[in-house]
Amino acid sequence: MAAVDSLWEILTVATLVALAGLALIVGLVRGRGGKGGTKTIERPPTTAPTTVEDERADREGVQTPPGDDVDNVGGGVDVLEPEAPTPTLERPESARGRLARLRARLSRSNNAIGNVLLALLSSGGLDEQSWEDVEDTLLQADLGVEATDELVGKLRTRVKVDGATDVETVKGWLREELLALVDPSMDRRVAASRVGERPSVILVVGVNGTGKTTTVGKLARVLVAENKDVVLGAADTFRAAAADQLQTWGERVGVPTVRSEREGADPASVAFDAVKSAAEYEADVVIIDTAGRLHNKAGLMDELSKVKRVIEKQSPIDEVLLVLDATTGQNGMRQAEVFGQAVEVTGIVLSKLDGTAKGGIVVNVQRRLGVPVKLVGLGEGPDDLAPFDPEAFVDAIIG
């Protein structure tokens, strides 16, 4: 009987050892499943927004850090990824879909100009007072003195030679001459595609209050609608709300944002790291938002020039877009000239080209800077930014 008990004990121990060995083998097999399984990538932690003053008082105290050496560039910057795509991720409206809607809105705000001009030109028997009224209407539309003189001169010639006064003929003349002033031959494409092995770099500049950060967010939506891989750079480091706002725009359409983790960080450093991150992500384009600058503050404009130089140590800048508030009229012209001297502007974005805005600013700013208006904003909606179409613009003005 003792022998049977011993045998039973031996069998029990052997069974337990076998089960333990089997469990160990199963564990090892499961632990080696990396090559065939799903690789989990942890996203960088999101830095909680810091609270700073909305903007330094008149930005007078902002000092441009000495030098442009990039040895110290790159510290303290987070790449804030958007959450993984979910059913709530927004799908921006395509550019084509925007044009008809924005054209109708532009027509409502600028049609009065065309109506006045057509009434004057088709009234017959135009005297000097009538031509002065035509000039005044064009000047009030922010067309500018030079362009107004040119347009009135050509219309005078047509009326003198042809003598027609019916509305349709006059409307055709006005359309032809206005379209020539807007210049449809200008290249209005935004450089937003990869250049060789690197992403395109877009720098967005402008004064305070023009809607610059909002424009950057809306531009990202335009490009996402065109299936572009976009990275945003929040180089407006002097206003905490700007980085938060830009990050929110990006998250809505699945676009990552590069921003500083420190209050008042060097804007050039953030811009540099945004371009670097975009290259690592193999993005199509990186859009850099900069702090709003007063165009009459030389130190701030020098700082903006530094941002541009530091970026160019890593990559060429393919596009410098100047955001202008279309309601500022002639003051916007001065802004355009100063920014053009500081950063070689390549294109204009006219924000707020609705309501009280006058369409003639398109012609005026193009003549002053020699660069095209590429995008226009006509409302508060997220998709109220669209590529500028010269023919649709002129047709909207004259009705």
Rank of each mutant, 00 (worst) to 15 (best):
T86I: 06
N111Q: 10
V73R: 10
L89S: 09
A112M: 06
A100R: 12
S130Y: 01
L138H: 01
G74R: 07
S123Y: 01
L80G: 06
N111G: 15
D68N: 05
W131K: 00
L106F: 14
A119P: 00
A95D: 08
P66C: 04
S94F: 07
S122M: 06
S109H: 05
D127C: 05
D127H: 06
L80W: 07
N115Q: 13
D71F: 14
L102G: 10
L126H: 02
N72G: 15
D71Y: 12
A95F: 10
V79T: 11
P85M: 07
R98G: 06
L102P: 00
A112R: 04
L138E: 01
T88G: 08
S123W: 02
R108K: 12
R98L: 09
L139M: 12
P87S: 13
V79M: 14
V79Y: 10
R101D: 08
L139C: 03
L121A: 02
L120C: 03
A100N: 05
S109T: 10
E93F: 06
A104K: 10
R101E: 13
S123E: 05
D133Y: 01
L80S: 14
P66Q: 10
E93R: 09
R91I: 13
L138S: 00
L139P: 00
L139I: 08
D133A: 12
D71S: 12
L118Q: 04
L139S: 00
E90I: 06
L89R: 12
S122W: 02
Q129K: 11
T88W: 11
A104G: 08
S122N: 04
A104P: 00
A84I: 03
S123K: 07
D69K: 03
A95N: 08
E83P: 10
R101G: 11
E93H: 02
E83S: 14
A100K: 09
P85W: 05
G76I: 08
L138M: 02
V134H: 01
D69C: 04
N115M: 11
V73I: 15
L99F: 07
G75P: 05
S107N: 12
A84V: 11
G125K: 06
P66G: 09
V77F: 11
D78I: 11
I113F: 03
P66H: 08
E93Q: 15
R96L: 13
L139D: 03
R101Y: 07
L139K: 00
E83M: 07
S123N: 01
E93N: 04
E132G: 08
L139F: 04
R105M: 15
G74F: 09
V77E: 07
V134K: 00
L99Q: 10
L106Q: 07
D133N: 04
W131V: 01
A119K: 11
G76Q: 10
R103D: 13
S123T: 02
E81F: 15
I113K: 01
R108V: 12
P85V: 08
R96I: 10
T88H: 12
V79H: 05
V77N: 03
R103V: 11
R108I: 09
P66E: 14
V70C: 06
S107Q: 14
N111K: 09
V79K: 08
A84H: 11
A84L: 10
T86N: 12
E93S: 09
I113C: 02
P92Q: 07
L118W: 07
E90H: 11
G97F: 05
